[in-house]
């Protein structure tokens, strides 16, 4: 479904990604692992269109999306979270959930006059599913870190998507929430969602991933089943050597 072809990216002389080539298969959970600075988040940014690569192509469902605008890529069905939770400080939970609905039509008139009032019940259900025990009109600034992380994932899911890109979905949360998120992702896996995951927790990766890709400086050093990759000598060296 998603092809990364020979992506190269430097930041002011530092070669962050030296040449990345791999494929993400549909309906599978793929994990990207690698030491810090391996270029994982950079790759996410390139895929989402927030950064342009120096060389190479990203092909999504047979379309070359390398040079597309981020909002167009999002509307093609790529939905992502950020490593450090990003939400709109001045808006409420309800605003966020409403916002991810159908942004294809940016026509001014439609957005001023049409007030697609979905019933709040739908959104309250979402909150319940995610275990977010707050009301819809709560401002983001009043949520705890864990709740924000949950909401971010909720938003990413609520948005119509074909590919989910999750950047360290359980980083920085307590065990309870981590386990909630794990269960959620397992459920999504059962529902055959296509997920691309970045994470450092090897147990988590082992449980979830169908396929693991290990990167170092953006270059694939090993890929395969979780068992195979996590025992690979080169991979262990890369991690220990950091």
């Amino acid at each position: 479904m998603l092809e990364i072809k020979n992506i190269k990216k430097s930041f002011g002389g530092v070669k962050a990604i030296k040449g990345s080539d791999f494929i993400i298969e549909k309906n599978k959970v793929t994990a990207l692992i690698g030491p810090n600075g391996a270029g994982k988040t950079t790759l996410f940014d390139i895929i989402a269109g927030l950064t342009r690569p120096d060389e190479g192509h990203i092909i999504f469902e047979e379309k070359d999306i390398t040079k597309k605008e981020p909002h167009k890529i999002a509307n093609l069905g790529i939905s992502r979270t950020f490593q450090q939770v990003r939400l709109f400080k001045n808006l409420t939970i309800l605003d966020h959930l409403q916002m991810v609905e159908d942004n294809k039509d940016m026509g001014l008139l439609k957005n001023i006059f049409t007030n697609k009032k979905r019933s709040d019940k739908k959104y309250e259900q979402v909150l319940e599913n995610f275990g977010i025990k707050r009301t819809l009109d709560t401002y983001i600034s009043d949520l705890s870190y864990g709740q924000r992380k949950l909401l971010q994932i909720a938003m990413t899911l609520e948005k119509s998507h074909k590919l989910l890109m999750l950047d360290e979905p359980v980083a920085g949360v307590n065990k309870v929430i981590q386990s909630d998120i794990e269960n959620l992702l397992l459920k999504l896996k059962e529902e055959n969602e296509t997920i691309l995951l970045i994470d450092h927790d090897m147990e988590f990766v082992r449980k979830l991933a169908d396929h693991v890709i290990a990167l170092d400086a953006g270059v694939v050093i090993c890929e395969g089943t979780p068992d195979k990759v996590l025992k690979n000598k080169k991979v262990l060296e890369a991690y220990l050597g950091e």
């Binding site: 605008e69 709109f88 605003d95 916002m99 957005n111 006059f113 049409t114 697609k116």
Partner: peptide
């Protein structure tokens, strides 16, 4: 406009974090 229209909320989202807005599918520049 501010309370009911989506564009009003979208404007505030864009003002808050244009990049994030883009990844949710909003054409920030427009």
């Amino acid at each position: 406009f501010s309370k009911y229209s989506k564009l009003g909320k979208i404007m505030r989202a864009v003002s808050d974090n244009p990049e994030l807005a883009k990844t949710t599918g909003i054409n920030s520049i427009r």
